[in-house]
Design a protein around this nucleic acid. Sequence first.
DNA 1: GTCTATAAATCGATAGAC
DNA 2: GTCTATCGATTTATAGAC
Lengths: 202, 202
Amino acid sequence: MSNRHTGRANRGRRPGAPDTRAEILASARTLFAARGFGSTSVRAIAAGAGVDPALVHHYFGSKDDLFVAALELPVDPRVALRPVLEGGLDGAAERLLRVFLSVWDDETARLSLLGLIRGVFEPSGRQLLRDGLLGVVLGPLGPALGLDEPQRRVALVASQMMGLVMLRYVLEVEPLASMDGEVLVATYAPTLQRYLADPLPS
Amino acid sequence: MSNRHTGRANRGRRPGAPDTRAEILASARTLFAARGFGSTSVRAIAAGAGVDPALVHHYFGSKDDLFVAALELPVDPRVALRPVLEGGLDGAAERLLRVFLSVWDDETARLSLLGLIRGVFEPSGRQLLRDGLLGVVLGPLGPALGLDEPQRRVALVASQMMGLVMLRYVLEVEPLASMDGEVLVATYAPTLQRYLADPLPS
DNA sequence: GTCTATAAATCGATAGAC
DNA sequence: GTCTATCGATTTATAGAC
């Protein structure tokens, strides 16, 4: 596990001077928050961390992966949402709600997510939440479900889910705060399904 | 209107020593935020301001009036919502959305309201927003429209409106942020009407 | 153990004296 | 403008019947 206390110290490669991986993450968080995902280049992140751009890919894979890591989400939304995306448009709202509630009703995940929501009122936090929620979390719904006007439909879905979060988990308004998950699914699924699939006005 | 600059200064009664009205307001804000509307008595507010309870009524009328004043809302929700309450259940969602958007799309009012929303993450601000939004603003919908399960229906309505506020006015997500008001009404009215009038699950 | 009746305290609001 | 006195309603607590 380590070569400390083996009698023969200083064997092998020493740990990288300052923790390179952490510096890349810090640089990414700062830049993503300040300029948004689209306007931040991997090269800029590498420069901010004082490392070679190739190291960014070495540690994190794609720029998307790095963004997800920088968000510090308790779950990888691309994994969690897979069953939602793969099931087709029928019943998509219901599956989405179930995934959504299972994450938010887990206490550890909830605390982490609340931290993200908290940043809403600072410009950097807004940018992060916009790109994260609309881009990474709900964005894939558009292509995967074959939505027309994907941006608009996804924004409508997001508006209802964000409101549910605010009332149930932030403001803790009754009876929403202690309502059974299945009842919530039954209540909100028709709304979300309408936003996803029904004809949009004008 | 005033005796300033009339050439004969200091006419009439001078303003009361410490501004009693303002002290009552300050005391009310503190107590409403800390304990909530229901658990705060007019007597406690008066004690906090060091004045007689009757003065509270003298300056502000009812306890409800005082609460609205303490919220520093840009409009009196009880006045603004009158047409919503009086029109009956049919079309209530549409009328509610129109009033809602007319207030939020006014810049002065919006800035003031955003200040209220900002307090969501502090316990005192939560209490204030809960009592304000659910109690004063949307609460009257229950009795006026003759809703069954008024608490639940009003909370559902609030969850969609709060989400719309977050996406359109706080996060400023497109295309919601610059969407025409009438399109928004047409989009969200069916959702709100369902929350108000349709059978609820379980 | 559960429900009802009643007593006590507290509250919001008003009228009127200073 | 400020305060005393007080009403009527609501809430809270207690006691006793079943």
